[in-house]
Design a protein around this nucleic acid. Structure first.
Lengths: 119, 119
DNA sequence: CAAATATATGAATATCTGCTCATATATTCA
DNA sequence: TGAATATATGAGCAGATATTCATATATTTG
């Protein structure tokens, strides 16, 4: 990065606005973490998984068949969703059922859909 | 993909649940589009830009200086955010000011943050 | 008009990511 | 116990992506 390219790097152009911005700016690693949370929703396969789970739980096998995506690929994606706490699993015999982790997830999904419809 | 690996590919294991899932499953290209919308928030630099814009507009130069990211990189990221309609720009002379596009964006951001805090 | 400034963009590159393939683990059932 | 079934996972590869660098465009100012 070339920090000394322009005058603005040394003196902000709009000090008052920058002061406001600082107040809401994410701190430290929060930006990374937030980005990874949104990243968990940033893939079509994962979006379709989330949408399938909006009103019911499903097992891996049924998700795979419903979305026509291989079981391995679905398992890999579910792991990411689990890691970011977007879904939760419960095991019953050899079947593992997945559900959305909490209401935030469907809210995020619906808010995103709403944004799309508004443009 | 190996579709004929398991019995479930031909007969769903839980027909009733799959029927429920079908009702909420995203259709056609909506999954792709939704994923790209969330993808716009799936990078730390873009998350930090959004957070800076929560309460004020900012010009490119000030964003670059505030985040200590090169002007070029910021411009590239702003373009993505503009393309996905997460931010809007207004030009005044040679200065370009960016703001969040609408309330959905800050809501998405805040919901994401809330989810992080709850785990 | 020429120099300076603010922003945008194309190309190149290094890194990340999603899928497949092969295989491991765990559970049921004969 | 052994075969079948449901799920998980590591390695590898092909495609996506964030940044840098060089440069282009647009606007102001001297």
């Amino acid at each position: 990065m070339q920090l000394k390219e322009s005058a603005c790097e040394e003196n902000f152009i709009h000090e008052a606005k920058v002061a406001e911005a600082r107040k809401t700016l994410v701190q430290g690693d929060d930006g990374e973490e937030l980005a990874r949370t949104f990243g968990a929703l940033a893939d079509p396969t994962r979006v379709r998984i989330i949408s399938a789970l909006l009103e019911t739980e499903l097992c891996v096998c049924d998700i795979s068949a419903l979305l026509k995506v291989s079981q391995s690929a679905i398992s890999h994606q579910l792991r990411q969703l689990r890691d970011m706490r977007l879904v939760r699993s419960r095991k019953e015999g050899r079947i593992v059922y997945y559900t959305l982790d909490d209401e935030h997830i469907s809210e995020l999904f619906l808010l995103g859909s709403e944004h799309l419809r508004h443009k």
